[in-house]
Design a protein around this nucleic acid. Structure first.
Lengths: 352, 352
DNA sequence: CGATTCGATCGAATCGATTCGACCACGCGA
DNA sequence: TCGCGTGGTCGAATCGATTCGATCGAATCG
């Protein structure tokens, strides 16, 4: 404690060389005689020196070797979403060869998303908005002002930031047409969070005007372009339990819907649970469809009707985009296609 | 690009104050006249200054405000494990109030765990070994030499590091006695990775001597203390698919076991799948037990016989231990109890 | 009214490494 | 033998903020 940790200068002194030479011996940039290098390393060993201080190195170099990932929700929820996990995995894999670290900027139980003060203290060379493409995110602005390159996944398409998203509108529209073609008219939506403020329940017009996420907005718009205005129940986060609550809410309506369009597969699983708890059979009494195309072990043999997005590719691409930005290259925006998958949870409505 | 980003000194000059005063205006430590502070902030706005450079601040302060989490596996696998996720969530929650960031130090597809070079470049104030308590981990040594406080979850109990673990031996022993009491003799083990080198398959004596993880070793020892030497199939990572492969391997043996003890619930699910693929009924033809006590939606109504560890508490405690260490307090080691849960996947062996 | 705080501000040292330009000696080709 | 390129080393400036001690005027107290 009282002892100061050894510095490179101390090592250099002990080895009888100048600090600059000692630095070269460690970093490998520039010619150093083999004998000198060994003398330096020996001195380091004797002093218990574990290599250059990352902070000092970063300051001088102007880069920290760290990429931030803004997650928004608390990790416990975010990591239940295979799409988010694949994204982070893709980024981590892409960063690994260059030894770049991945810093999670996550929200906590109290406030949904990380606060600007916290985030602005973090030394990141680039940042990915992973699960929260809020249009008006103050963090976006902050990073742009700092000159930190930003990748937004499913995020707002603003000048200065690189966007990777999927065809949310197209997929949702195709899905809605599928449901309509089956003959459903009384349709309701179990929605992803409209904002990160923990609110949930039936959505009124005021709330609907506040949709802050590009993906949520596109999916909702596509649905209503097919069916007209529909009841919407908002889940405060993308987990099965909240889907179940939203499902109960929608199924309690006086005019019970014959189909529920969930904005994610996790929510869809919850809706199915809610339906079964009420004694309804899926798809005979209620059609339930999702979005994402993740594994749904909860459903056993049943296959969820959903829109499949290319999850693994999204992960890989997001990783590539980040490394490109770090290397000073500006990758183009990417818009991935999606595919309707008709499973066994959608069917014609029972004729009353 | 050609433009240099504004520095605090530039802001100070523009505001007509000294750099030290400008610093005080930002950090809030020390008295500054309200008028001065506003002048500084105005100057900052005009220059597009987004606050002090985190790197410079960290260097001076001697802390980075970042905690590292060593994950070992690639994220795609690590995050499928609810125990690991709960751990990270607990840490993130505990760190959040102080604005401390969480840096993932993960392995990639190539090498299991992060390389020492990568890790030693990372500016961390403390580090948690989350899912990889390797005894001989070179990273441990590195951090200790650097003077970085280390928390090891399920990790090796070495001097200088703080340990949070569960009663692995006790739980596994109780579980083994349960299986023995049912009348099983031909028992096999589906094991967690013995080392992080991607190897898998049946374990011979040479390999067995290499067990590098405290939890895996304890569970195996407890099992063999009850049953004597048993066949062991190693899974290269803790995911359902690898459990299935290990299960197939064990069930292909000439003397088919009547019970398989999986070292995790995820592996147990895989083993059950393998059994069912072979037309075996669980638990009638084969008893399968796990470890951890996570949700297993794959199993439908069935309840896995397993050892339940207090996952949420583990997360909370690990978070608290880290914050304690950051505050300069040395928390005591913690050893959490576990509990046997008898479900519907274990039964007496069929009498032949 | 003189002595003493106290609040506000400034100068200068500091954190620990990297890097640029200078320097020296040596070997090689002309 | 002279000049030149080059491998190896060193000094000093630099990265951008924080912080300690000093300073100075104004307010407080005896």
């Amino acid at each position: 404690m009282g002892e100061h940790r050894a510095t490179l200068a101390a090592v250099a002194a002990r080895a009888g060389v100048s600090p600059s030479t000692a630095s070269l011996a460690y970093s490998g940039s520039g010619p150093v005689a083999e004998s000198t290098r060994e003398r330096v390393l020996a001195a380091a060993r004797e002093l218990g020196y574990a290599g250059p201080d990352p902070l000092a190195r970063s300051l001088r170099r102007g880069r920290s070797g760290i990429v931030g990932a803004v997650v928004g929700e608390r990790l416990l929820y975010a990591f239940r979403d295979p799409v988010a996990v694949a994204l982070l995995d893709g980024i981590a894999e892409a960063l690994s060869p260059s030894g770049t670290g991945l810093l999670l900027l996550s929200g906590d139980a109290q406030h949904g998303s990380p606060t600007p003060e916290q985030v602005s203290r973090m030394p990141v060379d680039a940042v990915v908005f992973a699960t929260c493409g809020r249009d008006d995110d103050p963090l976006l602005d902050l990073f742009l002002r700092r000159g930190v390159p930003v990748v937004a996944v499913d995020g707002p398409d603003l000048p200065g930031i690189t966007v990777l998203d999927i065809d949310d509108y197209g997929g949702a529209a195709e899905l809605a047409r599928h449901v309509a073609a089956l003959g459903h008219h009384r349709v309701a939506v179990a929605a992803l969070p409209l904002r990160l403020d923990g609110r949930s329940g039936l959505v009124d017009d005021a709330r609907r005007a506040l949709v802050g996420f590009a993906d949520c907005r596109a999916r909702l718009a596509a649905t209503e372009d097919v069916f007209g205005p529909v009841p919407v129940a908002e889940a405060p986060s993308n987990v099965v339990e909240e889907g179940e609550r939203a499902g109960r809410l929608l199924l309690a309506a006086p005019e019970r819907p014959t189909a529920i369009i969930a904005q994610s597969d996790l929510l869809a699983v919850g809706v199915i649970r809610a339906a079964e708890a009420l004694g309804l059979r899926v798809p005979d009494d209620l059609t339930v469809v999702g979005y994402d195309g993740i594994d749904t072990p909860w459903l056993g043999e049943r296959v969820l009707t959903t829109v499949v997005q290319p999850i693994a590719e999204k992960g890989r691409l997001s990783g590539r985009m980040v490394t490109d930005l770090l290397a000073g290259r500006q990758p183009p925006n990417v818009h991935l296609p999606v595919q309707l998958r008709v499973g066994t949870t959608s069917a014609r409505p029972a004729t009353p």
